[in-house]
């Protein structure tokens, strides 16, 4: 499936050219373009219309964009092959998928995995430093990046593959995923990593400075969050 690598790699540029007016439309249209050119190779008169369809305003969470791109590519290929209902379905499904995926993926990637990555980096660097390991900061940074990028790239890649293979059926598959338990587990892991990083920094006066001030500031931050939520 030659479409997969192109869609996957180009989906990484979804945010390029983000504008208030069309959001991620430019990145989406560019990412989908090789798939459209392949689909309409035998019917070039349909290519311009297909390209214009995907220059409409579009916005979703970038890590979740693979499923939308894969689904849109599959439905456009069917339309180019003669299934007249596929193009309207692609347009409707694209908007609906983008909105529903953005909600879950924002919570998972921005709200849970991003803080997990930062906290894990800090906790790992401090633990490695305390243990006397070489290059503790580099170790922390690499672990933090892995904590985010392994799931992010996996979701992107699986999304492109499922979208291409199943078309609109991929939306049904995505809706059945246990995303809420994943989000809760990632938030809990992130909270534990933040607590671990704070405890490790607090236990070493070189990092905590005044321990009383550090503890008071941590407690004040916790209390402000408790009241707000």
């Amino acid at each position: 499936m030659r479409t997969f690598p192109s869609l996957f790699l180009r989906s990484l540029f979804l945010q390029a050219g983000f504008s208030e007016e069309a959001r991620q439309a430019l990145g989406f249209a560019w990412a989908l373009d090789p798939a459209l050119r392949a689909a309409y190779a035998a019917r070039p008169e349909g290519l311009a219309e297909a390209r214009a369809r995907h220059l409409e305003s579009f916005n979703t969470q970038p890590c979740a964009s693979g499923l939308v791109l894969g689904t849109a590519a599959a439905l456009e290929a069917r339309f180019a092959a003669g299934d007249a209902a596929s193009a309207p379905r692609a347009a409707a499904l694209k908007g609906a998928l983008a909105a529903s995926l953005a909600g879950a993926a924002d919570a998972l990637f921005w709200g849970a995995l991003r803080p997990l990555a930062a906290a894990l980096a800090a906790a790992a660097a401090l633990a490695a430093f305390a243990a006397g390991w070489p290059r503790p900061l580099a170790l922390g940074v690499v672990l933090g990046l892995l904590a985010f990028n392994v799931p992010a790239l996996a979701v992107r890649g699986v999304g492109v593959a499922r979208g291409l293979a199943r078309g609109e059926g991929a939306a049904v598959w995505a809706a059945a995923l246990p995303v809420q338990p994943w989000i809760r587990a990632a938030r809990l892991a992130a909270a534990l990593a933040v607590a671990a990083a704070a405890a490790l920094a607090w236990s070493d006066p070189r990092f905590s400075g005044s321990r009383a001030l550090a503890a008071a500031a941590f407690a004040a931050g916790a209390a402000s969050s408790w009241r707000r939520e």
Binding site: R187, A190, A191, G221
Partner: peptide, 17 residues
Amino acid sequence: VPWFGAGRLAVSLARRA
């Protein structure tokens, strides 16, 4: 700032988990 932010983040994440 880092301590205040860590406390705020830990509680916010734990409550929404």
